[in-house]
Amino acid sequence: MATELSEQELALADVRQRAVADLEQIGTTEDLEEWRTRYFGRERGEVSAILKGLGKLPPEQRKAVGQAANALKAELEGLMEARGQELRAAERLAALDRERLDVTLPGRRAARGHIHPISQTIRDISRIFRLMGFQTLDGPEVETDYYNFQALNIPVDHPARDMQDTFWVVPGQILLRTQTSNNQIRIMEQVRPPVRAIVPGKVYRHEAIDASHEAMFHQVEGILVDETCTMSDLRGVVTRFAREMFGANRKVRFRPSYFPFTEPSAEFDIDCIVCDGKGCRVCKYSGWLEMGGSGMVDPRVLRGVGYDPTIYRGFAFGLGIERIAMLRYGIDEIRLFSGNDLRFLRQFT
């Protein structure tokens, strides 16, 4: 009796064998649904039919067959779930694969233009001096002889005028400023100390244009006046500037020089950024690059704007912006800045 299987048990074994075999053949979730209907469909599912038929069995068989049928149902459902997961994963993968892109195609870029390297350099200079409390101001380019020369201790017929060939609008009276230093006077006339400002802007020189000379170029003037500053502060400020702009280890050299509106006057050099001071073509084998002029504001200039030179001290400095940009970006042709060739401009930020 125990070895003899009932008709129902044989039927269950048969269903199991077919169901498992069928399941292995299934390749899509749609087929899986069909398989489920075939075996578990409420109306005609084969497993469902066996379960439904339990009632007709004699009571002694009902329990055993019932247990076997339920176990088969649980087993097949488990297999179906697992198969379903596999198929869904495969189908998702296939679907994603169909969406595969050529990621090497160029991106859809947001529009972005370029800031002119002179503007960018002025921006960087301004940021550096802002760190040290300097405000960025501007002033007129069409200027009187007074502000450009006389108030800066450069009277008419002073030989220093040779250093700056001038474009005249009204000869002897109105000119295009040859230096941003005109703003020293304008700022000091407008405010009382403390003064801490830089003034970047265009300047004009009546000079033949070549690879290193422009008739219009840019300078930045700096001025600080208060009751405590000395030339050592000037040195500290330009040193900080040089290191922010050209690298943390830059050396700065101060040389006595002459400007009619500063006393004492100094030119400052940095060790060559190309050869680190060893000597090369860029620094003309001197190891040093001239950066700008500076000095303590001349007492005559201070008195001229109504500052008492026994109370107030000040320093001023001037830098050439094209020169800084040329050194930073490795440009050896100044005319590129006013040439506005997009092949040049696109190389900058």
């Binding site: 040290m132 405010v191 801490r196 400002a197 208060d226 500053c229 500290g236 400020v237 700065v252």
Partner: peptide, 10 residues
């Protein structure tokens, strides 16, 4: 020497 100015700001 090289120092940073300590005076008041404008």
């Amino acid at each position: 020497p090289s120092t940073i100015p300590v005076g008041p700001l404008p």
